[in-house]
Design a protein around this nucleic acid. Structure first.
Lengths: 128, 128
DNA sequence: CTTGACCTTACAGTGACTGGAATCCCTATC
DNA sequence: GATAGGGATTCCAGTCACTGTAAGGTCAAG
């Protein structure tokens, strides 16, 4: 498979696939012309990475998850621990965004949004 | 005021304050020794920026908000429009994170988290 | 006169790509 | 055989909003 084939298969852009090779997440073979040659196992790994990224795992977490995936002797506790930590971070991020959302919603509701200069949003930013 | 004074006043790190000058958000004066000299108005602007950033506005949005703040003839509709767009983006981000959260919660709950290698988290990542 | 706290600039690094330029390869057609 | 196209390659720069570090200048106290 060439890069565009595996890009179609995995839904990842060719640029991203090249980047993943550059940082050592995958190691596709090379044809005599220098083209990357992707085995089914490479495509499989890329799909794995794509799903992990879609769940918000960092690249370094993805690297660890891949290593665990390939380690037949892993303990599921290691995987769970990683996922739990990530989940906690997501929940913190949600809480933070919800706090912004609440403030913004309130301010937007208060603002007349007409041609006059008076604005509670700017007042809030100016005075805290 | 020197940079550390205004840093204390605004809660922004000196590094960030220098950066904000570099990108033209503030224009403090300079003493003969080259030190930045912050007027009360600079400190006020920085506090404004800090609050806008805390609400998640991008630097470019902050620049626009500052310009609107300083424009006596602004229309509050312009401010409201900016805030509304930002709010929408925050809500999209929250929805995206909540979707990740739901999946991760489910997977974490399913995973035994013991010494055995069997793991629904990895299975999900591998098979989709 | 030295110490130590403060200030300055300039440059590199972060995360995870993304865009663009220059060049090479392969296949098909004229 | 020349050429046109679509795809592949590498390398470099840019994104966003800082943050870290190094090398040096300034100031007040002792």
């Amino acid at each position: 498979m060439n890069i565009s084939d595996v890009a179609r298969e995995t839904g990842l852009p060719p640029k991203t696939i090249r980047y993943y090779e550059e940082i050592g997440l995958i190691r596709p073979l090379r044809d005599t012309n220098g083209y990357r040659v992707f085995r089914q196992s490479d495509s499989h790994k890329l799909a794995f990475l794509g799903r992990a990224r879609a769940l918000g795992f960092s690249i370094e977490d993805c690297r660890k998850l891949m290593a665990l995936y390939e380690d037949q002797d892993r303990a599921s506790s290691d995987v769970k621990h990683l996922a739990q930590e990530h989940l906690t971070q997501i929940e913190e991020k949600i809480a933070q965004l919800q706090s912004m959302q609440a403030t913004l919603r309130h301010l937007v509701r208060e603002c007349a949004g007409d041609a006059r200069p008076d604005c509670p949003i700017l007042r809030d930013l100016a005075e805290g």
